[in-house]
Design a protein around this nucleic acid. Structure first.
Lengths: 231, 231
DNA sequence: GCACAAGTTTGAGGCAGAACAACGTTGCCT
DNA sequence: AGGCAACGTTGTTCTGCCTCAAACTTGTGC
């Protein structure tokens, strides 16, 4: 693994207002760790003793129902804080974080949380902004689940994935990490069968192109219409 | 309206660590206001220039879809802070707050938010705890909507209402504010017809008793079973 | 006290999407 | 290179719940 470098953090919102010495101090207290594809960073209910920053890779944040079904609450992209239970005065993690690709994250013990927020006001501010955005996204998903038909929900989920982790490829925008039909069904509250049928239909009409664990959106505009956006 | 009194706040978590003089100072800067039944405190998208504390009554926090359907995101009970967009660095309210009964709330201009959180650490702490609880509840609702059948969701919604605002009456626990079948359908993503049928069935088997805009849960235990809780 | 509106109940029918089932495909591991 | 498991597709059946429809009930304002 490469040596930790100040340049990793300088451009990220929580740290962008800090000087080199401050970033150095933060970095010196961080523990970097690599996570294998499909391995867990922490589990739901586990003691929340650290908070994290994703440097590279993608994560899925998952909740499991009593019946054993999983639903994906959230995806984490590089540069985002996660596992920030301490910010909400929680002492256990409310969900499980899994690496959707091989990933690299920094973490700090929770006792540093208070120190960071007190010494670096922009750190607290940015964190709560992130939290506000997540809360808003969750409200939107509740509304969607409660009112929209499956096709719209799946279309909206794809658009969200693309906006959060889209990378340009020839002929469209690709979701930057491996994702299965099952995964998408766990984001939208449907079955992998229904997702498969939808993707097949969309591929026929030239809206997406998909392969195993890979999805490229070729016509975001038509997908937006399917998602029910007002024209 | 009664004169504002320190005793209104002393027992509430955000203020319980403060002394009389501090509470007096906070109270002196507050604007109290009464809201009629079914009137709005603020609207979705509106400039978030104040934050609020509900002293008496009950509120519904509502989101409206582009198609005009409403869904109820949250209920607010006496003693809770609401409209705390500033805590999340938002400049507009993400939802509409409506009085479910005649209600009384205090409010402060957002510029005092920073002052409060800086001067009274326990205020910030308690607020973020509340936020954490709401986030957790929203996750649970997403999971429910994505995986559970309608009957379970409605049962769970009733139990949540009872735990948040239940008042003992003879023969059971009553939801403390007027609530229609339509309202419950807007909490659970179903139709008023389905809710009506469920309540009728439950009334026949002695689990609830209901009248117009009034619901009494007579057998919480059986409702808990219906909600899918593991025994 | 009557009329009207708002809330509720109940019935009947249809359909989106879940459940069940079977087969095809691709990548990975030895 | 071959075998196997994970992933994906597609067809068929079935049902939970929405939709449409109509009547009933209860509070409320004139």
């Amino acid at each position: 693994m490469a040596q930790l470098d100040e340049s990793l953090l300088t451009d990220l919102p929580p740290f962008s207002a800090l000087d080199r010495a401050q970033i150095r101090a933060i970095l010196d207290q961080a523990t970097p760790k690599r996570y294998d594809h499909e391995s867990a960073i922490f589990h739901e209910g586990q003691d929340a003793d650290r908070f994290f920053l994703l440097l590279d890779g993608y994560l899925r944040v998952i909740r499991t129902t009593p019946e054993g079904e999983q639903i994906i609450a959230l995806h984490i992209s590089p540069g985002q804080l996660f596992g920030i239970a301490p910010a909400l005065q929680r002492d256990t993690y409310p969900a499980t974080a899994m690496a959707a690709t091989e990933s690299l994250a920094l973490s700090w013990p929770v006792r540093l949380w208070e120190e960071f927020t007190q010494n670096y006001p922009s750190f607290a501010t940015e964190t709560y902004k992130t939290l506000g955005a997540r809360l808003g996204e969750m409200q939107t998903r509740i509304t969607e689940l409660a009112t929209q038909a499956v096709e719209r929900r799946v279309a909206a989920a794809l658009l969200r994935l693309v906006s959060q982790s889209g990378r340009k490829v020839d002929g469209g925008v690709e979701i930057a990490f491996p994702i299965t039909r099952q995964n998408i069904s766990e984001m939208t509250g449907t079955t992998l069968h229904t997702v498969s049928r939808l993707l097949s239909a969309w591929e026929k009409s030239g809206i997406v192109k998909s392969a195993r664990k890979r999805i490229v959106v070729t016509d975001p505009h038509r997908l937006l219409l399917l998602s029910g956006a007002q024209s």
